[in-house]
């Protein structure tokens, strides 16, 4: 409210916190941004970078990756152009498919589904949120009750049901995830719109004679959208986890699509016998990617809060 003598310590503290926290959260943010960028790049060009055909099985079944001591020799042979056996850097799976190629090609499925679903729900959710925040109170309330209802469904099981019964394909997964995530964006945008509508600069624009539509477009929506965009980064990560999880239990993408969750599922039986590589490498890919989106989202959030 009024001027606070607290300001002095608060300012100093904020300065100090910023000094301390900035390097770490900035490193995290940059690492996250790099991972996000890489995942988007692989989504587009990944399938063209694969050293082996991702769909054609070979005779080299369950070949382990080269041991670390073999790597320098193989690299030398490759660079020298000398004849060498087919190298599978991450081994092959039970069908003789090259794990590295498939890990590289998988973002075409995983990332595009996650990004697509979130773009869809971000668009629909923020528009519905804007509507719920500006419409008459009872219309807004009704929108929120419906969105509550969607959120009361158990996410993973509902996803499983919708995808399986609607026919397992990338398209149905996108639509299903979009439906399940839309309430998050409705809620977020609406509460932002409700606060932004009463901000001083919005009233100032009214006093300057701007129309309500102009204000909603130029002041309210741009300011209300930021939290939804930040949320999107985190939710894309969750959507990747869910896409992989659905195919892991057999209710997602169909084989033989190169997809991380399917690859982990296919290698799961071998792991008990010590054949770890067909499952471990796609898992590392998921682990890094989702962490990257979380770190990126967290960094965005901190930047926005400043």
């Amino acid at each position: 409210m009024s001027e606070s003598a607290e300001i002095d310590t608060a300012l100093l503290q904020a300065d100090f916190d910023a000094q301390l926290a900035r390097p770490v959260s900035n490193t995290l943010f940059h690492v996250g941004a790099a991972i996000v960028a890489l995942s988007l790049l692989l989504m587009v060009i990944g399938p063209w970078l694969t050293p082996y055909d991702i769909g054609r099985p070979s005779d080299e079944i369950m070949q382990p990756p080269p041991s670390l001591s073999q790597v320098p020799g193989l690299v030398r042979q490759m660079l020298a152009g000398a004849p060498h056996p087919a190298i599978h850097w991450l081994g092959t799976d039970s069908a003789g498919l090259d794990v590295f190629s498939r890990v590289l090609a998988a973002p075409r499925a995983d990332v595009s589904i996650a990004v697509g679903a979130n773009l869809f729900s971000l668009l629909v959710g923020s528009l519905l949120g804007l509507f719920a925040g500006t419409a008459r109170p009872w219309v807004g309330g009704l929108t929120m009750r419906i969105s509550d209802l969607v959120q009361a469904f158990p996410v993973f099981i509902t996803g499983m049901i919708l995808v399986t019964l609607a026919g397992r394909s990338n398209g149905t997964i996108v639509v299903t995830l979009a439906l399940l995530y839309t309430p998050i964006y409705i809620r977020l945008t609406r509460s932002e719109v409700l606060t932004q509508r009463h901000r001083g600069f919005v009233d100032a624009a009214r006093v300057l004679g701007k129309s309500e539509g102009w204000i909603a477009l130029h002041h309210v929506l741009p300011n209300a959208l930021a939290p939804a965009m930040i949320q999107a980064s985190v939710t894309i990560g969750f959507a990747i986890l869910m896409t992989a999880g659905l195919s892991f239990v057999g209710a997602g993408v169909r084989p033989p699509t190169p997809e991380w969750g399917l690859m982990i599922a296919a290698g799961a039986d071998g792991i008990v016998q010590g054949e770890w590589w067909p499952s471990v490498f796609p898992g590392i890919a998921i682990s890094i990617t989702v962490f990257g989106y979380a770190a990126f989202g967290n960094g965005l959030e901190r930047r926005h809060a400043r």
Partner: peptide
């Protein structure tokens, strides 16, 4: 903080398999 960010974004089914590999198979 770094740990919580990491742990919160992991595929649990894969970690389950990893644990099986180490604590059962190995």
């Amino acid at each position: 903080f770094g740990y919580s960010l990491f742990a919160g974004s992991q595929p649990e089914f894969w970690w389950g398999l990893l644990f099986i590999f180490f604590f059962f198979s190995v």
